[in-house]
Amino acid sequence: RHRTTFTSLQLEELEKVFQKTHYPDVYVREQLALRTELTEARVQVWFQNRRAKWRK
């Protein structure tokens, strides 16, 4: 699998949602996936990684 490189616009969208909730439900993730043109799975993994980073 290749590494997904996020654009600054995608990161902006993702971070905006992360500020509101660290655990977006499937509906929120789907909406975010559509807005960022990423798959829902990529969005889910981004949140997992972002939460790990936040905990440190």
Rank of each mutant, 00 (worst) to 15 (best):
K53T: 12
Q19D: 09
E13R: 01
H2P: 09
H2V: 10
V45H: 14
R1F: 15
W46T: 01
W46Y: 02
D25W: 03
L34P: 00
S8R: 11
T5G: 13
K20Y: 06
V26E: 11
R1V: 07
K53L: 12
V17N: 02
W54N: 09
D25P: 11
K53P: 02
R42T: 15
V45G: 12
K56E: 13
R35D: 04
Q31A: 11
V26S: 13
L14H: 00
E12Y: 13
W54T: 11
E12Q: 07
K16Q: 07
R3G: 14
T4R: 06
W46D: 03
E30W: 09
P24D: 00
L32M: 02
E40W: 05
L32P: 00
F18M: 02
K20Q: 12
F6V: 10
Q10G: 01
W54P: 05
E40K: 06
H22L: 05
V43A: 03
E12R: 10
F47D: 02
R50F: 00
R1T: 10
Y23I: 00
V17L: 12
L9R: 14
A41T: 14
E15D: 03
D25V: 02
T39Q: 06
Q48A: 11
E30K: 12
R42K: 13
Q44T: 12
A52G: 07
R42D: 15
R55P: 12
Y27W: 05
E12V: 09
F6Y: 13
A52R: 10
D25Y: 00
V17S: 05
V45Q: 12
P24A: 03
V43D: 00
N49T: 10
T21Q: 08
T21M: 06
Q19L: 08
T5L: 07
L32N: 02
Q31I: 03
V45D: 15
E37G: 14
E40G: 07
S8C: 10
R29Q: 06
V26C: 14
H2Y: 11
A41L: 08
L14W: 02
Q19F: 08
L9D: 13
Y23N: 12
W54I: 11
L38W: 05
V28F: 05
A33R: 07
E30C: 06
L32W: 04
T39P: 08
R3W: 10
V28A: 15
L14E: 00
A41K: 07
Y27C: 08
K20C: 07
H2L: 06
Y27Q: 15
R29G: 02
L11T: 10
F47N: 00
Q44G: 10
L9C: 10
Q31T: 08
V17K: 03
Q48D: 07
W46S: 02
K53Y: 09
N49K: 05
E37F: 07
E12S: 11
L34M: 13
V43C: 03
E40H: 07
K20R: 10
R51H: 01
K16R: 12
P24L: 01
V26F: 14
W54V: 08
L9V: 14
V26T: 13
E13V: 06
R1N: 14
R55N: 14
K20P: 02
L38N: 03
L11N: 07
Y23H: 12
S8Y: 07
Y23R: 02
Q48H: 09
W46K: 01
A41G: 10
S8P: 14
E40T: 10
K20H: 09
Y23P: 02
L11R: 08
T7A: 05
Q19M: 08
R35M: 06
L14Q: 00
Q48E: 10
N49P: 02
A41N: 07
L11S: 09
L38M: 11
V43W: 01
F18P: 01
W46P: 05
V17D: 00
A52N: 12
T36Y: 10
H2G: 14
H22R: 10
K16T: 08
T7M: 04
T36I: 10
L32Y: 04
L38H: 04
Y23K: 05
T7I: 01
R50K: 14
R3F: 14
R3M: 15
R50V: 04
Q31P: 03
Y27P: 06
P24V: 01
T21S: 05
Q19S: 11
T39Y: 02
T7W: 00
Q31K: 10
Q10T: 02
E40S: 11
L14K: 00
R29N: 05
L34N: 14
A33N: 01
Q31D: 09
L38K: 06
T39E: 08
W54L: 14
P24G: 02
W46V: 00
T4L: 10
N49Y: 08
L11C: 04
L32E: 00
R3T: 15
E30L: 07
E37I: 03
L9Y: 15
E13K: 03
R1S: 10
L32K: 01
K20E: 15
K20S: 09
R50W: 05
L34A: 13
R35L: 12
Q19Y: 04
A52C: 09
K53I: 08
R29I: 15
D25M: 06
R3Q: 15
E15R: 02
L38C: 08
E30I: 08
L11Q: 12
E40I: 07
K56S: 15
Q48L: 07
F47E: 01
F47L: 03
Q44A: 13
A41Y: 05
Y23Q: 03
T4N: 15
V28Y: 05
H2E: 15
E12I: 07
T39D: 13
A33K: 07
R42M: 14
H22E: 05
R3A: 07
Q44W: 05
K53M: 12
R51Y: 01
R42A: 13
L9P: 10
T36L: 14
F18Y: 07
E40M: 10
F6L: 14
Q48M: 12
Y27F: 12
R42G: 10
V26N: 10
W54Q: 14
R50D: 04
K56Y: 06
P24C: 00
T39S: 13
H22G: 04
R55I: 08
V43R: 00
L34T: 09
R35E: 05
R35A: 09
T7V: 04
T21V: 06
T21C: 08
Q10S: 03
A41E: 11
V28I: 09
Q19V: 11
Y23T: 02
R3D: 12
N49W: 11
R3N: 15
L32V: 10
F18T: 02
W46E: 00
L14G: 01
Y23F: 08
R42W: 08
V17A: 10
W54C: 11
K20F: 08
Q19T: 09
V43M: 06
Y27K: 13
E40P: 13
F18V: 04
E13S: 05
R1L: 10
R42C: 11
T5H: 09
V45T: 12
E15W: 03
Q10D: 06
R29K: 05
R1P: 10
E13L: 05
E12W: 06
Q19K: 08
N49R: 11
W54G: 10
R51L: 04
R42S: 15
T4H: 15
A33H: 03
R55T: 06
K16P: 01
L34K: 15
H22V: 04
E37P: 02
Q19C: 09
S8H: 08
Q19N: 09
V28E: 12
Y27D: 12
F18H: 00
E15S: 02
K56L: 09
D25I: 00
E30N: 13
E40L: 08
S8W: 07
E15L: 00
R35T: 09
S8T: 12
T7Y: 00
T4A: 12
L11Y: 05
R1G: 14
Y27T: 14
N49G: 09
N49Q: 15
Y27H: 14
K16E: 08
Q10H: 01
K16V: 04
Y23A: 06
F6K: 00
W54Y: 11
V17I: 09
H22A: 09
Q31M: 06
V45P: 05
F6R: 05
E40N: 05
R1E: 10
Y27A: 15
Q48R: 10
W54M: 15
E15T: 02
